[in-house]
Simulated scan of single mutants.
Amino acid sequence: MDMMQIGILGVAGVLLAVQFKSGKSEYGIYLSVALSLFIFLAVIGQLSVMVDALSVIGEYIRMDTAYISTLIKMIGITYVAEFSSGICKDAGYQTIAVQIEIFGKLMILVLSMPILTALLDTIREFLS
């Protein structure tokens, strides 16, 4: 799916969900979750293009493949955290949404520690 189709689908879904807001608000939330999952699956379909591009970049600069896989994991964590947080915010649970965002940030920090230590080791080798 291209961006135009996703945009139209998103706006149509929101307009439909607004219709349920006055009477049965839970239907609007269910519609929002279903629409979000559909868009999420469309993004996953496009993810293979990004993974291939990152692999090509990794071959050009000859870096360890662990760094590329870590970068892909970070992107995935970011997307899932934002996706989950957005659904929680739409449902009215801001506290849970903030906790999901904090957990996502901490997971990215944990994933980046080996890369940070490798960078510091490289700097130390240059300085000595």
Rank of each mutant, 00 (worst) to 15 (best):
M1F: 08
D2C: 06
D2V: 07
M4Q: 15
V11E: 04
L15F: 07
S22P: 00
K24L: 04
K24T: 07
A34E: 00
A34Y: 02
L37N: 01
L37R: 05
F38L: 11
I39H: 01
A42N: 12
V43R: 09
I44C: 13
I44H: 11
L47W: 10
L47P: 00
M50P: 07
M50R: 09
D52F: 10
A53D: 02
L54N: 13
L54E: 09
V56T: 08
V56W: 07
I57F: 09
G58L: 03
I61W: 06
R62N: 07
D64I: 10
T65M: 14
A66F: 15
Y67R: 00
Y67K: 10
T70I: 14
T70H: 03
I72Y: 03
I72P: 05
K73V: 05
I77N: 04
Y79K: 01
V80F: 04
E82H: 02
E82M: 01
E82I: 03
F83P: 00
F83Q: 00
I87V: 02
I87Q: 00
I87E: 01
C88D: 06
C88A: 14
C88E: 12
K89A: 14
G92I: 06
Q94A: 15
Q94C: 09
V98T: 11
V98L: 15
Q99G: 08
E101C: 06
F103Y: 11
F103S: 13
F103Q: 12
F103E: 08
G104E: 04
G104A: 03
G104R: 00
K105W: 10
L106H: 08
I108A: 11
L109S: 07
L111F: 05
L111V: 08
S112A: 12
M113D: 07
I115P: 03
T117N: 08
A118P: 00
A118T: 00
L120G: 05
D121P: 03
D121E: 15
T122E: 11
I123M: 08
I123T: 13
R124G: 02
E125L: 14
E125T: 09
F126R: 12
L127P: 03
L127D: 05
S128L: 09
S128T: 14
